[in-house]
Amino acid sequence: MLQIPRSALILGLAGVIPFAWGALTLVSDPLASWGTGALGPRFVGPYVQLFYGSVILSFMSGVLWGFATKAQGGQAATGYALSVIPALWAFFMTGGGPVSAGMNLIFGFLGLLILDWQFWRWGLAPAWWMRLRGLLTALVVASLAVGVIL
């Protein structure tokens, strides 16, 4: 089955909303003002993108850990070791200001895509996994790029 299950696609796309919202509030002063007033300054611009991006990289570490539980022996050990990289990357690489943190999140999500591919190649992820992860990664990286460029 190569078609992405509807629920996974909808929830995955919903998970992109904070990244897209952050980008929109960077390019639209009226949205940024409304968001700051209604939601608070932490939920607009790069702030929402950077915090949420760290959370999602950590979440994806858990997803990869779950995939590693399907493996045996050395492959399982390798899978467990690889699965912690996104969370550690988020922890160590998202300081130093919004531009460098945004760039490091972009690199983190691109690196995660490589890990996704490896787990998929090993047969530990669903057949449709790379279709979903490619789409979501492209949207996340594009959103984060707005924060880095502006």
Results as ranks from 00 to 15, higher is better:
L2V: 07
Q3L: 15
Q3D: 07
Q3K: 14
Q3T: 13
I4L: 14
P5D: 05
A8F: 12
A8Q: 15
I10P: 00
G12D: 10
A14Q: 00
G15R: 02
G15F: 07
G15Q: 04
V16T: 13
P18T: 04
P18H: 04
F19A: 10
F19E: 03
W21N: 04
G22S: 09
G22R: 03
A23G: 13
L24E: 11
T25R: 00
T25L: 03
T25C: 01
L26M: 15
D29P: 04
P30V: 13
S33Y: 02
W34K: 09
G35D: 04
G35M: 02
T36L: 00
G37L: 13
L39Y: 10
L39E: 03
G40M: 06
P41W: 01
R42E: 11
F43Q: 09
F43D: 08
P46R: 09
V48E: 03
Q49K: 10
F51Q: 03
Y52S: 14
S54W: 07
V55T: 09
I56L: 13
I56D: 03
L57S: 00
L57N: 02
F59M: 10
F59N: 10
M60Q: 07
M60D: 00
S61H: 12
V63Y: 01
L64K: 07
L64M: 08
L64A: 05
W65G: 04
W65I: 11
T69K: 05
T69H: 09
G73E: 08
Q75G: 03
Q75P: 01
A76L: 13
A77C: 08
A77R: 11
T78R: 05
G79I: 06
Y80I: 10
Y80P: 04
L82V: 07
L82C: 12
V84E: 03
V84P: 04
I85Y: 03
P86T: 14
P86S: 14
A90G: 11
A90D: 14
F91H: 08
F91G: 11
F92G: 15
M93S: 03
M93R: 02
T94F: 03
G95Q: 12
G95E: 13
G96K: 12
G97T: 10
G97N: 11
P98N: 15
V99T: 14
S100E: 10
A101Y: 10
G102W: 00
G102A: 01
I106S: 04
G108H: 00
L110R: 01
G111N: 12
G111V: 02
G111K: 11
L112H: 06
L115Y: 07
D116C: 01
Q118S: 00
R121W: 05
R121G: 02
W122C: 10
L124E: 09
A125P: 06
P126T: 13
P126E: 11
W128S: 05
W129C: 01
L135Y: 12
T137Q: 12
A138H: 10
S143E: 02
S143C: 13
L144G: 06
A145G: 15
A145P: 11
V148R: 05
